[in-house]
Design a protein around this nucleic acid. Structure first.
Lengths: 341, 341
DNA sequence: CTGTTAGCGCATTCAC
DNA sequence: GTGAATGCGCTAACAG
C-alpha cells in the first residue's frame, strides 16, 4: 500500500506521494530535504531514507516556479559559424563545468552574433537563466547592457574598459610586452600583423607591443604596423610591405593571422627561421605542431572559464567578490625564433 | 489605472495583469496567445495588441510546470578536457542552433565523460530536458540506455549498430573506401595508422579501408595495420615498423594521429610527398594549412548537428521521421598525395 | 516540532 | 465565445 506510487521509474514520485507514504505533510518533507526551518532529527532521517530508497527526486521545474530560479546559467558565446577559435570557447565551457561540480547549476548555451535571432533577449525575458558568462569582450557588445538591464548577474571573460563590470582575463598587455621584449633582443626589426579590431583584446595586445618597443627605444613605423587585416589578400599585401621595410620577425596578433602569414611565407619560399622569424600572440595546436614550431603566448581558456564561473557563483549567492581577476600566461619559445647570441 | 501593473520592465507582467487590464479572464488571454480552443477574432486582436505594447512575456517556468516541458534540449558531449576535436562539437552546436531558429527551444550542455559527475542522470531525473542529442557514438556508452529508460527522445550523431536508434552520420565506410581506392592507384603500398577503438567510427573506417584493399586485390598485412595507437611513443614505433614494411603512403584515421605522424616524419627528415605520402580520414585546419597540405576526408559537423536536431524536433512533435540519416562528404586531394601517372 | 493554507504563473477542463 | 475552478509540484508564512 505504501508503495502504490512507487513504480520504480525515477521521477514519477511527487512530494505528495512521499508525504502520504510517511504520514506527514508535504511541508515536512520539503523541510527535511532543504534543511530549512525547524524539524526533528528523526523525521529528517525517515524522510531521507524513504527518498533514497524510492529514489524520489524533487521536480526542478516546480522548484523553479516556487523560488523563481532556474538553476541554469547562460554561456554567451559567438555564433559558431562566425568564429575560428572553437577550442577557446569549448575550453571555457570545460572550466565552467569544472567550477560547477557539486553545484545544482547547468549551462544553457546562448549564441550571440549577427546571424542569430535574439536568443539572449528571449532567454532573459523568459527568465531562463539565473546568471551568465559572457565569453567574448567586444567593443560593440550589447550583451552586457542587456544583462545589466535585466538585473541578471554576469561576468565577462575578457577585458572591458568599465572596471565596475565583473571580468576575468589574462594580462594580455603584459604578456605581449614580455614576448615582444624578448623578440627585440639583438635589435631585430619587428613587424606587427594585426587582427580584428572589434575585440578589446586586440587593443591590449597592441599596447603591449608598443610599450615594449618604446621601452627598447624603438620608434613606431607605419610600414611595420598592420592592423585589422581581414582575409589573405590583405595579409599578403601587408606582408609584402613589411618585407620591403626590412622586417626580420613577423609578430602575429593571433593564430589565424599567423596561419595566413605562414602560408604566404611558404608561398614565397621563405624559410623560417633562416630567412625570417615568426611569433604569435596567441597559440594553437596548429602553431605548436607546425614545422618549425612557432613561438607563441599560451593562455588557459579552461582556467579562465573556471575562474569566471566561480566569480559568478559568488555573485549569485550574494558573496562578496573581486570585480576583476587576472589569470597567468606562459611564453612558449619555439623553433621559429631561435635565441640570439 | 489600466497601466498600474505596467512598470515598463519586461517580464514583470503576469497573465493575470493582462487579463485584468482587458477585463477578460486569464483563460481567454491564454487562449489568445496559444491559439488553442475557440476564441473570438476580435478578442485575439485586442489581447495580442496589449501584449505587444506592454511587452508581456509568458513566464517560461510556469509554462513548463503547466505543460510538463522545459523547452530545453540536451547536448551531450564529451567532457572538453578529454578531447581534442573541439571544433567538431562546436560545429555540431552551430548546426543545432541553426535548426532551432524560430523555435522555442534552447540547448543545455551536458558533459558526459569519466571525470564528470552524473550530469546526465541529474538532468534526466530533474527533467531538465525534453530531448537530447548525443554527439559521440561510443562503443561503451550508457547515455543511450539512460535516455531510453527515461523516455526522453534523442538522436545520436554517429553510427550505432542498433539501427532502431535514431542516428545521423556520414557514410564513413564509403568515404574511407573511396579515398583508399584513390590512394591505391599505381599499386602504392598503404599503411593504416589507427586511433581510438572505443569509438564506433574507428571500426567503420577500418572496414572502409579493408574493403577497398580487398577490392584492389591487396592482401592485409599485419605490419601495415596499426590500430589503437595512443600517444607519440606508440605512434613512433608503429611508424618505424610501417617504414620497414615498405609503406609508401601513411593513411591516418584521424587528424590527431596524423599530427603525430607528421611530426615524427619531420623528425626523421622524411619529405612529403617525395619520400613518403600521407593522407587522413579526418580533416582539420591543421592538415589543411600544413605544408604541404594533407589529403583528407572532409565532413561537415554543422550539417550533422542541424540534421540531428531536425530529426529530434520531428520526434518530439510526434512527427514521423527516418531512423537513420546520412550526410555527404568530400575528398580533398592535396599536395601530400600527388596524382600518379 | 509539524500541519494547514496560500501562492508561484500558466493551461486546461468544465460549465454557461 | 468566455469565465471559474482546478491542478502542475514545491516552498513559505502562519498557526497550533
Amino acid at each position: 500500500m505504501d508503495d502504490q506510487f512507487d513504480n520504480g521509474k525515477a521521477g514519477n514520485l511527487t512530494i505528495k506521494d512521499v508525504a502520504r507514504a510517511l504520514n506527514v505533510s508535504t511541508a515536512t518533507v520539503s523541510r527535511a530535504i532543504s534543511g530549512k526551518g525547524r524539524i526533528g532529527e528523526d523525521t529528517v532521517r525517515r524522510v531521507k531514507e524513504y527518498i533514497r530508497e524510492h529514489n524520489y527526486v524533487p521536480n526542478a521545474i516546480a522548484q523553479s516556479l516556487a523560488d523563481q530560479r532556474t538553476y541554469n546559467i547562460g554561456f554567451i558565446c559567438p555564433s559558431p559559424q562566425e568564429v575560428g577559435a572553437q577550442y577557446f570557447y569549448y575550453g571555457c565551457m570545460a572550466g565552467i563545468y569544472e567550477a560547477l561540480t557539486d553545484t545544482p547549476y547547468d549551462v544553457l548555451i546562448i549564441p550571440d552574433g549577427d546571424r542569430v535571432d535574439g536568443r539572449l533577449e528571449r532567454a532573459l525575458e523568459k527568465r531562463k537563466i539565473d546568471g551568465a558568462i559572457v565569453s567574448q569582450a567586444l567593443v560593440e557588445n550589447h550583451a552586457e547592457s542587456r544583462l545589466r538591464e535585466a538585473g541578471v548577474p554576469f561576468v565577462v571573460v575578457g577585458s572591458l574598459p568599465d572596471k565596475t563590470i565583473c571580468q576575468v582575463d589574462h594580462d594580455h598587455r603584459a604578456a605581449c610586452a614580455e614576448l615582444t621584449r624578448r623578440l627585440l633582443t639583438g635589435g631585430r626589426r619587428l613587424a606587427l600583423m594585426g587582427g580584428d579590431l572589434s575585440q578589446y583584446v586586440t587593443q591590449d595586445r597592441l599596447h603591449g607591443f608598443l610599450s615594449a618597443c618604446r621601452e627598447a627605444g624603438v620608434q613606431e613605423r607605419e610600414d611595420l604596423l598592420y592592423l585589422g587585416l581581414d582575409g589573405s589578400e590583405q595579409t599578403r599585401a601587408a606582408l609584402e610591405k613589411a618585407l620591403v621595410a626590412g622586417a626580420a620577425c613577423l609578430v602575429c596578433m593571433d593564430d589565424r593571422i599567423c596561419g595566413m602569414v605562414l602560408s604566404q611565407l611558404h608561398h614565397r619560399g621563405l624559410r623560417i627561421p633562416q630567412d625570417i622569424q615568426v611569433a604569435s600572440y596567441y597559440d594553437s595546436a596548429l602553431l605548436e605542431s607546425y614545422t618549425p614550431a612557432i613561438t607563441a603566448l599560451r593562455f588557459d581558456a579552461q582556467k579562465l572559464g573556471a575562474v569566471a564561473c566561480r566569480m559568478l557563483l559568488d555573485q549569485m549567492e550574494g558573496r562578496k567578490a573581486e570585480a576583476v581577476e587576472t589569470v597567468g600566461y606562459d611564453i612558449a619559445l619555439r623553433a621559429s625564433t631561435p635565441a640570439t647570441e
